[in-house]
């Protein structure tokens, strides 16, 4: 068994409070191992980004973490619950242990500060070093992601979208974090740039050895770049498996549907079909399995009882009545 680094247990995340609140992430368990790329996939609104921001307590109002634990394993073997530690401790942990590359680099950079200032900011906040050393490090980081170091004094608006995203990646790696969360890091970019950036990332991960939580709606990217994939639907994880297994034999009809919506990059050609219908309104969740109204293989039990995520065979977890689980 590989070493665990981040464990999410029974996480619930709501938008709003009281009678009008909506549960956007429901009872999610997830484990990230050292050095692994864990993919998180689902349609937009499936709760994958909410999960990522909820577990790092970065979800903007009206988001609320309504329960659960997020256990982080520190280097010295001790663990902390990110949801229970003091603000000052959380601030220290942020970026030095867990860094995030946000969706849409256009808005992730402060428009009125130079790239250098924003890179140096991180170094200054987390380590004692000289201004000279910090600038050198900033230059080094830019080179690492393939940007000429003379771009250091640029403002964000002077860079292209792809460059900005690279700057964000450089920034995320500044403190050599052990976990990097990437939320649709390449969605806004064209396909060529997208591939380039992901290649860079894969190379860097091999050299630096951090773990990645990779969030995207593009399952084909995950199949290519991640070790394990968790599929989310309506705020719940409905299937989790090694990417190769998931690609070959998706167990949940929703996973299958997602795979059908993208052209395969490798292997035999398939027909694109997609999934009929749209994700449920979180305020009016259907009874039983939340996917059953859209599911071609729905049975009577699906509308009555909610399936739970469990081991169906070795290494495969799925929440579906088609695949009875062995409890444990």
């Amino acid at each position: 068994m590989k070493e665990r680094i981040l464990e999410v247990r029974g996480l619930n995340v709501d938008y709003g409070m009281g009678p009008e609140s909506v549960r956007a992430v429901r009872d999610v368990d997830l484990t990230l191992h050292r050095g692994e790329v864990l993919g998180l996939a689902g349609e937009s609104g499936s709760g994958k980004s909410t999960l990522a921001y909820g577990m790092t307590r970065l979800l903007p109002p009206p988001g609320i973490v309504a329960g659960g634990e997020v256990i982080y394993h520190l280097d010295d073997g001790t663990t902390v619950d990110l949801l229970r530690i003091r603000d000052a401790d959380l601030r220290r942990l942020r970026w030095s242990e867990i860094a995030i590359v946000f969706q849409g680099a256009i808005n992730s950079l402060n428009p009125v500060q130079r790239i250098s200032t924003q890179l140096v900011d991180v170094l200054k906040a987390h380590s004692a070093s000289t201004p000279r050393a910090r600038l050198d490090r900033a230059r080094e980081l830019l080179t690492l992601v393939g940007i000429a170091s003379d771009r250091l004094n640029s403002y964000p608006h002077q860079l292209s979208g792809g460059m900005r995203q690279r700057v964000m990646i450089a920034m995320a790696l500044a403190l050599e974090p052990r976990v990097v969360i990437m939320d649709e890091p390449t969605t806004a970019l064209d396909v060529v740039v997208q591939r380039q950036i992901l290649r860079t990332l894969v190379d860097l991960r091999e050299r630096l050895g951090f773990s990645v939580v990779f969030i995207t709606h593009d399952l084909s990217l995950l199949v290519e770049f991640s070790d394990r994939i968790a599929i989310m639907y309506a705020g719940q994880v409905v299937e989790e498996a090694a990417s190769a297994d998931l690609y070959r034999t998706p167990l949940h009809p929703y996973s299958d549907g997602l795979l059908q919506s993208f052209p395969a990059l490798k292997g035999p050609k398939r027909e694109l079909s997609g999934i009929a219908g749209s994700p449920p309104d979180l305020r009016m969740m259907p009874s039983g399995c939340p996917f059953h109204p859209r599911c071609a293989r729905a049975m009577d039990v699906c509308g009555q009882q909610t399936p739970v995520l469990g081991q169906s065979r070795a290494g495969r977890s799925v929440a579906c009545w088609l695949h009875p689980v062995s409890v444990g």
């Binding site: 942990l93 808005n107 950079l109 900011d121 991180v122």
Partner: peptide, 25 residues
Amino acid sequence: DDYVTVAHAKGLPERRVMLAYAARN
């Protein structure tokens, strides 16, 4: 705005987030 959330995610001191990121804009 996103860059303020990013500044929080970077673990910057509160004063820095408030002045250089939020107030400055």
